[in-house]
Amino acid sequence: MFGVGVLSEFESKQLLARHGVAVSRDKLANSADEAVAAAVEIGGPVAVKLCGSSLAHKSERGLVRLGLDNSSAVRSAADELLAAAVEDDGEVALLVSEMVAGYREFIAGVVHTEQFDAALMLGLGGVLAEAVGEAVFRLLPVSEADCKDMIEDLDIPALMAPLRGEPAVDQGALVDSLLGLAHAGGGEGVEAIDVNPLVIRDGLPVAVDALVVTTGS
């Protein structure tokens, strides 16, 4: 799309983190060795993804490896992913991320439209987010009360309550994430933001994947 660029997942999450959105623990690696070192530092099972500013739809291309729990698995995933990069992907690196476990996945984002200017979204997330289409919006700027209303409007109280051994969603933390996201999305040069999934771990939202679309390339 002319005049529109994207930030890599790593840059996108850094931007969100600066605005107070909790993001997964991530490390950027330029080689399989670095990826293994990063995985050791993060500890526990990790995800390794190919990361670059021309890689908007990684999972569709199979550029995501999940639940890698030993160094050889990390190394072979890293080798495969680097080998899978094509010329159009431009400059790429490996993103090593902690695995964030939680049954509940939301999608959140900001979008600009000609008719409404900027709007904040919260919806049911994961790979089926668009198919399910359960999402609510508010125009920016949003208040704390607006964010609380969004959670209520989503109207799935069972999803907010304790679920399958997981505690209830900390709604204050979810509101904070939404406010942070709104703040990031209202910033100069930001056209759209996707956070999907926003996983609920121990009741707290964590941005596991994110994409910032910028107005300039």
């Binding site: 529109v4 439209t113 919006f137 508010r138 607006d146 209303d149």
Partner: peptide, 24 residues
């Protein structure tokens, strides 16, 4: 129309945004 750029854009139907705006 913005499906290519973002999932949020794809979910951002006029009606959904209008609904949120009215509630606000």
């Amino acid at each position: 129309a913005q499906a290519a750029a973002s999932h949020t854009g794809a979910l951002a139907t006029d009606d959904r945004i209008f609904d949120g705006m009215v509630r606000q």
